[in-house]
């Protein structure tokens, strides 16, 4: 028997709607729960003071600062390399075994579990290169982890810029690089920025890569240089949730809330940038 197509349409619609709602519910629940549990912990002291009394009191300031530093460090290490590699792949590279190998490497890098990056960072940066547990080692580790995201999104953003602009640039006597700098990059910028922020956002929330490379269990003073260890929000959250007996729930969720706000703010920034430029885009 053939089901009438309007009935089919209704069934399909119902299934898809259910799927959409089921995806939304956990998200709302997670955010709602963390806000409800953590909002009571928030105060000026909470974000501006160091932890006290075995971390059961005081604030999370050193961890917050550490995460900001690590995010900046990740940006500094991953953006130039990632964007550079993407420009090479999108604008210069011919399709040959060399570039195919690079692409394959990038895809594989994206699939490596973050704890493996952590061990890699420990071996290479902390021990072999003698950076010790430091912001430098942590940033480099997070940077390498972020590279695949940045390369992939940047390359997509570049490829999306119409080919005709490149031909026009060449026809007016422009070199490939002049075309990239004057036309292609500015047009791809919103897409690139979005990719960068999404990558950094993931790095900011990761625990495993910083575990062996930079994160301090308890270090109330702020780092003085890139060779210092630092506390960081995700690891601090892990520590106070699992390693400290008698920890007030409120502080755990307050910390989670701050981390979430930090990451969501970056996300919001990415969305705003995309919106702003999409409205201005002319092709």
């Amino acid at each position: 028997m053939k089901i009438p197509r309007y009935t089919m349409q209704k069934i399909a619609f119902a299934i898809i709607t259910t799927a959409a709602i089921s995806v939304g519910i956990p998200l709302v629940l997670v955010i709602g729960y963390i806000v409800a549990q953590g909002i009571g912990a928030l105060s000026w002291e909470f974000i501006s003071a160091a932890p006290r009394n075995g971390m059961r009191e005081g604030g999370i300031y050193p961890a917050l600062v550490g995460t900001v530093w690590l995010t900046i460090g990740t940006a500094v290490t991953s953006i130039p390399l990632g964007v550079g590699a993407a420009i090479y792949l999108a604008e210069y590279a011919a399709d040959n075994w060399f570039t195919r190998t690079i692409r394959l490497a990038i895809i594989n890098l994206a699939g490596v579990p973050s704890v493996v990056y952590g061990l890699f960072g420990l071996g290479l940066f902390v021990i072999f290169l003698r950076f010790g547990m430091s912001i430098l080692a942590g940033s480099l580790t997070l940077g390498i982890m972020t590279l695949p995201v940045i390369i992939t999104t940047t390359e997509q953003a570049l490829v999306a810029v119409p080919q005709s602009f490149r031909v026009v640039n060449a026809s007016l006597g422009g070199t490939t690089w002049q075309g990239i700098r004057k036309v292609i990059l500015p047009q791809a910028l919103p897409g690139i920025m979005t990719g960068i922020i999404l990558g950094l956002e993931r790095a900011a929330g990761e625990t495993a890569p910083i575990l062996f490379t930079v994160a301090a269990f308890f270090l109330p003073r702020l780092p003085h240089s890139v060779f210092d260890q630092t506390m960081a929000l995700p690891y601090h959250l892990f520590v106070i949730s699992t390693q400290v007996p008698g920890m007030p729930i409120r502080i755990q969720y307050g910390t989670a809330l701050v981390l979430m706000v930090f990451v969501l703010t970056m996300n919001l920034l990415a969305t705003l940038i995309r919106r702003y430029y999409r409205r201005r885009r002319q092709w």
Binding site: P162, S164, F165, V167, L172, V183, W283
Partner: peptide, 12 residues
Amino acid sequence: GIVFAVPVPLPL
């Protein structure tokens, strides 16, 4: 210099 069939103004 060359002018193409479909005008492509640069996004400037």
